[in-house]
Design a protein around this nucleic acid. Structure first.
Length: 469
RNA sequence: GGCGUCGUACCCAAGUGGCUAAGGGAGCAGUCUGCAAAACUGCCAUGCAUCGGUUCGAAUCCGAUCGACGCCUCCA
């Protein structure tokens, strides 16, 4: 087996991936908060995790992939006035928070299916595992890592000396409350809520009993509690967006390691943002692009996947429709090329020639070097343009597609399809007109065919092809 | 204010000490064609933000400067 290298945020270096248990990989990926649709920037994160998973699978690992669905609303600040995103969403749409959660969970699953993202082995909803979260807070409470304020139970980060190692945080330099109001009862600016109390004069739609009072779990505890439940106290890979490094994942490490007393996760991987001209795409700014928006504009979801394949997951990618057009054109050319090659294939057979094996080795070297899919895609292009025979080309394309996920195997050889007889008749008339050198009539007939939604392509000897536009 | 990331052609982008700096898109020229499309062929960075330094050798390492972006309790 080839060696697989992954960039670990903990060490800020590429490290060889060595699983805790031979042949198996446990990975936990922070999932969506289901209060609204995912935008195409959110989806980039799940795409990156999909590539990671496909590379692990390709390398022969049995992958257990766990993803949470955050269906508990968290206050946008510690302030009593702060709004809960789930309840806000419910009010906006006149539904209960439970209905909101259900609806946007399904929308999320549909989005990732359209992008050919392999679903996680396990989806876990935060509200299904409140007991585990309360247990974990109890564990921290018993070990003396917590203190209570008027609004909740907090983690005392000063009791965890390694706090912030993941993010290389310079804690003194942090400006507390830079953007978000927070509780002034906190002992230290990095302390965070493990359990929040319901507002005194208000009943929340989602609240639970706990030894400390009625309320709901803090934002970070769900991921630690559920990842430990499904993957154990110490597991291989945890991933998410880069925005999770300084807070969410930093806090997860603190609470998990404080509770279990052992190392939590070996490899932390983070995907970069998709940005627009004005900066990162964000939901709170109001307008945002959904996958459906792209589909409505005539792009296929896989055009967007191809767009994402062009760059590395640790680099920001700039979204614009010009760039998406470039990806769509490139993808279309790739499919045309494959169609042509499939047309030239005489009898398909398994296996690769020695020459083809060299390309495969190069491809594996690329993807195993911290998921370098951009280079992998370039190797696919090299293959299609190479001197290899059609059989090798197709077998390699299908194999590479286990990582790329572009449905390349579904591309059929060029074929006539169902062309209406009237269109064929027009084309035959044009053939006659052309033979009679009546080019004016020929051009008119070409236009008529175009108006009916077909394109006429001349071939040698006066023959023609008709293709739907 | 602190911390972090990044700057490679018209656009996207790979390459992180040593062969002519991948690949895609767009463009241009040619072959073919009545025209067009497709296809094919060719062209497209003596240079990697700028200026210094280290080195036999730098896009790659170090420093400074300029610029862009992210995070500092909603966030992929």
């Amino acid at each position: 087996m080839e060696k697989l290298f992954l960039f670990n945020t903990l060490s800020r270096q590429k490290e060889e991936f060595i699983p805790i248990e031979d042949g198996k990989a446990g990975m936990y990926c922070c999932g969506p908060t289901v209060y609204n649709f995912a935008h195409i920037g959110n989806l980039r994160a799940y795409f990156f995790e999909d590539i990671l998973k496909r590379v692990l699978l390709y390398n022969g690992f049995k992958v257990k992939h766990v993803m949470n669905i955050t269906d508990v609303g968290h206050l946008v600040s510690d302030d009593d006035e702060g709004e809960d995103k789930m309840e806000k969403g419910a009010n906006r749409e006149g539904k209960t928070v439970w209905e909101i959660a259900e609806f946007y969970t399904e929308a999320f699953k549909s989005d990732i299916a359209m992008l050919n993202i392999i679903p996680p082995t396990i989806y876990c909803k935060a509200t299904d595992f409140i007991k585990e979260q309360v247990e974990m807070v109890k564990c921290l409470d018993n070990k003396g890592y917590t203190y209570s304020t008027n609004d909740g139970v907090y983690f005392d980060t000063q009791k965890f000396p390694e706090y912030g190692k993941l993010a290389l945080l310079d804690i003194e330099g942090l400006e507390e409350g830079k953007r978000i109001a927070f509780s002034d009862e906190k002992k230290h600016k990095t302390d965070f809520a493990l359990w929040k109390f319901s507002p005194k004069n208000q009943k929340r739609q989602m609240e639970w009993e706990s030894p400390w009072g009625t309320g709901f779990p803090g934002w970070h505890i769900e991921c630690s509690a559920m990842s430990i439940k499904f993957l154990g106290r110490h597991f291989d890979i945890h991933c998410g967006g880069v925005d999770h490094i300084p807070i969410h994942h930093t806090n997860e490490i603190a609470q998990a390691e404080a509770c279990t007393g052992e190392k939590f996760v070996n490899y932390w991987l983070h995907g970069e943002f998709l940005i627009e001209e004005k900066g990162k795409m964000s939901k709170s700014a109001g307008e945002f692009l959904r996958l459906k928006t792209l589909v409505d504009k005539g792009y296929s979801p896989l055009d967007y996947r191809y767009f994402l394949l062009m760059t590395h997951y640790r680099k920001k990618i700039k979204f614009s429709f010009e760039n998406l057009d470039a990806a769509r054109n490139g993808f279309q050319n790739l499919k045309n090329k494959l169609k042509e090659i499939k047309g030239a294939l005489k009898d398909a057979k398994e296996g690769l020639s020695d020459e083809a094996t060299k390309y495969r080795t190069k491809f594996i070297d690329s993807i195993n070097d911290d998921l370098n899919i951009g280079e992998g895609l370039a190797i696919l292009w090299d293959v299609l343009k190479s001197e290899l025979d059609a059989n090798d080309k197709i077998n390699l394309a299908n194999e590479f597609d286990r990582i790329l996920g572009l449905d390349l195997a579904k591309i059929e050889a060029e074929q006539a399809g169902d062309i209406p007889s009237e269109v064929i008749e027009l084309a035959n008339k044009r053939k006659e007109a052309k033979a009679a050198k009546d080019f004016k009539l020929a051009d008119e007939l070409r236009q008529q065919i175009k108006d009916k939604g077909y394109e006429l392509l001349d071939k040698k000897g006066g023959e023609f092809d008709i293709k739907p536009l």
